[in-house]
Design a protein around this nucleic acid. Structure first.
Lengths: 329, 329
DNA sequence: GTCTGATATGTAATCGTTTACATATCAGAT
DNA sequence: ATCTGATATGTAAACGATTACATATCAGAC
């Protein structure tokens, strides 16, 4: 593979001039420019990013940490991240750290090792201390899940308000026994959603029972199925379920269907995230929609700003309650 | 940020020795080793991949091309790719080229520019000529979708046989009017699945009608919905549907449900891919399962072999027909 | 004919590693 | 005391770009 020196030799100029042609950085006379371009074509020269990256000491790669590919919630966010990154000549290194906790370390080493210029973390299970430490020398943005002080900028929604709105909607429909499918309340988003759930119940003077709260072991459909099985064993069977995630809600829907319980009359269900599927279930699922694409786009924009040394502020985006058949009589 | 020279100076050795300690490449006396490790710790030194990559002229990055994140079919494959890559000190650069055809060029430039050491393409819409050209100088593996000569190694399943098996299953259930939801028959996998469909019909002497074949405009749920609407307008209404993708089949299921048509008695449905969600629909979806994780794992293994100059052979993996409620009376 | 400033190009250092080759050191054999 | 071979370390040249600085060229003004 030809390098810049060979191109220079062939064109009868110096490598500096070739570089100038390549980057359009200074004026090069049109005659030399043509000579250089001819040489490039003849040698099928392609500039090496390795050389350029070393010299500029940047990789133009952004690390994106997610918990798991299998949750479709992330795909739209990633679309947003990717679009903005590519438009700014960055590329993304998508890393799933779910399966193996020590894998996270491998990934974060990439930014320490200059293989990535910055990080967008969407993984709520991330080691916060490590992130805080890393943030002192590198650019980090949280997306969706974040750390509850302003040490690291984030883009998210008001989870508490969204959950409150969802539960209030269930209450307005006449439900008084409302169950909650939670997940890992050490995660900020889960805790906030629970707070919203509790606030709504309190505000309307409704009972709050431990047995109506199921702490799922994961975010898979199957975990939602389990939750409903548990609820159906309660002495006082709940008449509505709010889940912190659509995947859980869809599993719940499934199990309610299987048991022949009528939705929403005997059991109303609301999820969270508005993933694609939520519109394809039977019945369709009411849910809270986050502006996923925009969140990703904004996070990427914030990260690139931060890499370039600009100050960035956290953002809280709008959410929306989407009412579908699972709460529509 | 400290570099290797500073570490060397601090430890009172040469940078070569530091490098040797770092890479465990030659024997270093335990006393020097300790000195070096102490210096590394004190300076909080982290070796720069940029320097290393340039020197070794490799990036240790694998480019993975997919059509779209939104099809969950890919997520398991990517898991397999990632696991094998990371175990071999590679990382993956996941690229979605759906939205923008010229984006593909940006991605493929990464391998020309040495930013990626090889490519796994799962994008059936990829520009084949460009890939063939690229394959002359770089390592490329196709996964799932491939090019029908052996110029570029691939890992896939026998799509024709799988489709045949699925349709035969519908026939055995007593269906004689079987519709087919296809998608872009310029894609090898779609064409092969159609061949399997047609072979089954022919073999059992069943009619094959143009109006029972719907060519979807995309792979979204909504496209499956459209397909069923079309089928229901036929003079002779089909009693079964085979779709080239679970996403299409799930859309079909949805629309059939909405119309109040009984599944599977009045309309049986079979999909393809066994995505997670296919088990959560109501009723659950019969489908063809591909060994997605293994396919990804194998593709990564083949690519790394190829990068290291080994010869690799294409692989055809096993598939399995999974029978669920949508074809179970 | 000299000077000035603008324009175009070349020179060489630099980014941070790895590694071929050279050299130093030392134990054990003679 | 010298030699040998093994072991440990150092020297310096890559890898392939970018860029500060120096220099060459030239048109126009005097």
């Amino acid at each position: 593979m030809a390098n810049i020196q060979e191109v220079a030799r062939k064109a009868g100029v110096s490598s500096a001039t070739v570089s100038r042609v390549l980057n359009n950085t200074t004026v090069v006379s049109s005659r030399t420019k043509m000579k250089v371009e001819k040489a490039i074509k003849e040698l099928q020269y392609e500039p090496s990013m390795l050389g350029r990256n070393l010299r500029k000491s940047e990789s133009r790669l952004l690390l994106v940490l997610i918990h798991s590919f299998s949750n479709p919630f992330f795909s739209k966010i990633i679309n947003g991240i990717e679009d903005h990154s590519i438009a700014n000549n960055y590329n993304i290194l998508l890393c799933e750290s779910d399966s193996d906790p020590q894998r996270e370390n491998i990934f974060l080493n990439m930014v320490r090792n200059k293989l990535a210029d910055g990080v967008i973390s969407m993984n709520p299970a991330v080691d916060m201390e490590m992130m805080l430490d890393l943030a002192e020398k590198h650019s980090i943005i949280f997306c969706s899940e974040y750390y509850e002080n302003d040490a690291i900028p984030y883009v998210t929604i008001d989870n508490e308000a969204a959950a409150y709105k969802a539960v209030k909607h269930l209450i307005k429909l006449g439900n008084e026994k409302i169950a909650f499918i939670s997940y890992e309340e050490s995660f900020v988003y889960a805790k906030q959603r629970r707070n919203g759930y509790e606030r709504a119940l309190r505000e309307f003077g409704l009972p709050m029972r431990e047995e109506w709260i199921y702490n799922a072991g994961g975010l898979d459909f199957q975990d939602g199925v389990q939750a409903v099985r548990k609820f159906l064993q309660c002495d006082e069977r709940p008449t509505a379920v709010f889940a912190v995630s659509d995947t859980l809600a869809i599993g719940a829907l499934k199990e309610v269907n299987v048991r022949g319980i009528k939705i929403p009359d005997e059991m109303a269900v609301v999820g969270f995230d508005n993933i694609n599927f939520s519109n394809m279930t039977n019945p369709t699922l009411s849910t809270v929609s986050q502006p996923m694409y925009d969140m990703g786009y904004k996070a990427a924009s914030m990260l690139i700003d931060s890499i370039q040394g600009k100050a960035v502020d956290s953002v809280i985006m709008d959410h929306e309650l989407i009412i579908r058949e699972s709460t529509l009589s």
